[in-house]
Design a protein around this nucleic acid. Sequence first.
DNA 1: TTGACACATTCCGTAATGGGAATATAATAG
DNA 2: CTATTATATTCCCATTACGGAATGTGTCAA
Lengths: 110, 110
Amino acid sequence: MPRAATTSDVFNAIAESRRRDILVYLASCERPVGDIVEELGLGQPSVSKHLKVLRDVGLVRMRREARQVFYRMNVEAIRPVHDWARTFERYWRHQLMRVKERAERKHRSR
Amino acid sequence: MPRAATTSDVFNAIAESRRRDILVYLASCERPVGDIVEELGLGQPSVSKHLKVLRDVGLVRMRREARQVFYRMNVEAIRPVHDWARTFERYWRHQLMRVKERAERKHRSR
DNA sequence: TTGACACATTCCGTAATGGGAATATAATAG
DNA sequence: CTATTATATTCCCATTACGGAATGTGTCAA
């Protein structure tokens, strides 16, 4: 079984750093494809293909206006990532506490 | 330029769902490889390889004890993902607000 | 209609994947 | 030393990805 498709879920889609860049760029406001091409310094076909991946997993939406196509981020779709990462938040505390304790023991033993 | 290696960064490493499962399993406490194999119902070699990927990006650490190798999660390493996802948090508000406004306009126009 | 513009899709080559089987390595027991 | 247990590594392979070049599609202007 080879690697999962980039379009199989949000986690695979955001594995590519260019796509993460695109999302950050689109977070604040919608943009036509040409702007994204210019911003990323990538070829237009590449950008279009990245956008298709992002569309397939619901991370962006598009809107046609005249000859341009405007893309915007669908911020909701990031939630699975956010939630998953957050499940570890409660363990940070523990880990930091352990580090702190170790440091204190070291300090006392001097 | 083909796809980035799974070991190139944390985002690529967690693209695989099995590896996410492993991390969740290791978050609460350290475990020997055998336990992970049993938990995931995957082949032992596969698990070992997944663990190597996770080690390469610093998401897990290992400790040898007799014949067993115990793995534990390094929760700190998840931070890039958490932080990146959180950059969009402030936009949720806006998006939810827009949805709400649209609903209200619809309501009024009835 | 023709041309131009903005974007999408297809084709190509290179490189890496994850699983299973087989094999190698490390550590302990006897 | 030998056998056994617990992991790691290697080999194999079908599959997919990315970027660039070329080409297709859709919209508007003249």
